[in-house]
């Protein structure tokens, strides 16, 4: 099993997440559906380690990551607002994880070149995030996340902020990542996205 959430419980203030369980096979594309305020994003943050699980366990590739900090988890997350670092250009944003891993500059350059050609962002490398369109920001954020070679990719409403034309292109890209074998958990409130992309869906009750 690639990702396994077992009876995960969490509460903050007046919000309380009901015990949540989910199992994802390698290469599976699962949509997490639910109305606003149901805790979809909270579940992604729990899996990524950005919030601490109160009860239950989170296993990735058979290893228990429940108490591991976010930087030790083999999880990539694409935030709804993309969270690109505004003081770094696109190249430095994408290279961020590679620099942390201690890769040499020529190796970083080679690795990035392959990825930016695939995502069609090679012409953006010197630009700063505030000069990019929504679709461009998303592709850069995706490239940055994929540099960590995550076992599980978490997507928080990846298509909601894009206009119709870009949405199709972005959906095609996500489909391609999934067909390449990446395990994806995709949070959305749009059943159309589920139909288009996901192998199956899980609904969270408020």
């Amino acid at each position: 099993m690639m990702l396994s959430c077992k009876e995960v419980e969490y509460s903050v203030g007046r919000f309380r997440l009901r015990p949540f369980s989910l199992e994802l096979e390698k290469g599976e594309y699962c949509a997490l559906l639910g109305p606003s305020g149901s805790g979809k994003t909270v579940i992604l943050e729990l899996i990524a380690g950005l919030r601490r699980v109160h009860k239950g366990r989170i296993m990735i590739e058979g290893k228990d990551y429940t108490r591991e900090p976010p930087q030790k988890r083999p999880v990539g997350i694409l935030f709804q607002d993309y969270a690109l670092f505004p003081h770094m250009n696109v190249y430095d944003n994408i290279a961020y994880a590679l620099k942390i891993s201690g890769m040499t500059k020529p190796d970083i350059f080679r690795t990035i070149q392959t990825s930016v050609h695939e995502l069609d962002i090679v012409h953006l490398l010197d630009r700063f995030p505030d000069t990019l369109s929504g679709g461009e920001k998303q592709r850069v954020a995706l490239a940055r996340t994929l540099m960590t070679h995550p076992s599980v990719l978490l997507l928080d409403e990846p298509l909601s902020a894009l206009d119709a034309g870009l949405r199709d292109a972005s959906a095609a890209l996500l489909k391609k990542l999934s067909s390449d074998g990446l395990t994806v958990l995709h949070v959305t409130h749009d059943p159309k996205e589920v139909e288009l992309l996901a192998h199956r869906s899980v609904t969270i009750d408020p």
């Binding site: 930087q71 988890r73 690109l84 960590t148």
Partner: peptide, 22 residues
């Protein structure tokens, strides 16, 4: 924005590196 610090953490940065670089 807290999100930027969180993004850096998920990219493998230690909390001190996040403080220093973000």
């Amino acid at each position: 924005p807290l999100r930027l610090e969180q993004a850096a953490l998920t990219l493998g940065a230690s909390p001190f590196r996040v403080f220093r670089q973000i």
